[in-house]
Amino acid sequence: MKASGYVHKYGDNVDTDVIIPARYLNSPDAKELAQHCMEDIDKDFVKNVKQGDIIVAAENFGCGSSREHAPISIKASGVSCVIASTFARIFYRNAINVGLPILECKEASQKIEKGDKVEIDFDTGTITNVTKGETYQAEPFPEFIQNIINKGGLLNSIK
């Protein structure tokens, strides 16, 4: 599986309240949630995001509330992958469970800049920065988690 898109860049501790503010949690609908994705950290995100785009952030992405609405809204906004140095643990689980691709890669997080064009090969974990002509290697998933991803999410893996 491959992904390709332009980068939206953020810093440390992007919390789930700014990814999808609680004032929109009265709806579980993915399309509706996507209309407010990242609203409190980047009010132009929804206007600018295109199918396939990639979010790159630094440490502890997705900290705070357990709201699955956060990865759901990112996925429904068209984002093909989130790359970060580290993820908060509930967000990490939720992303895998809902089928939003995520990669941990400190080098990519540090070197990729806003607007760069990036390609990802999920089979090898290779991240290519087309704009800068660089490649970075993401941490591989443990086999147990890769198995959940391969089966298309947690519920498909336990059925």
Binding site: S66, R67, E68, I90, R93, N94, V98, L155
Partner: peptide, 22 residues
Amino acid sequence: ADSHTCTYGALGAFSTGVGSTD
């Protein structure tokens, strides 16, 4: 499915927050 589920650790339980799919 609430991040503050960790509260019950006060009673000596293992208790942790997860998302809705979990």
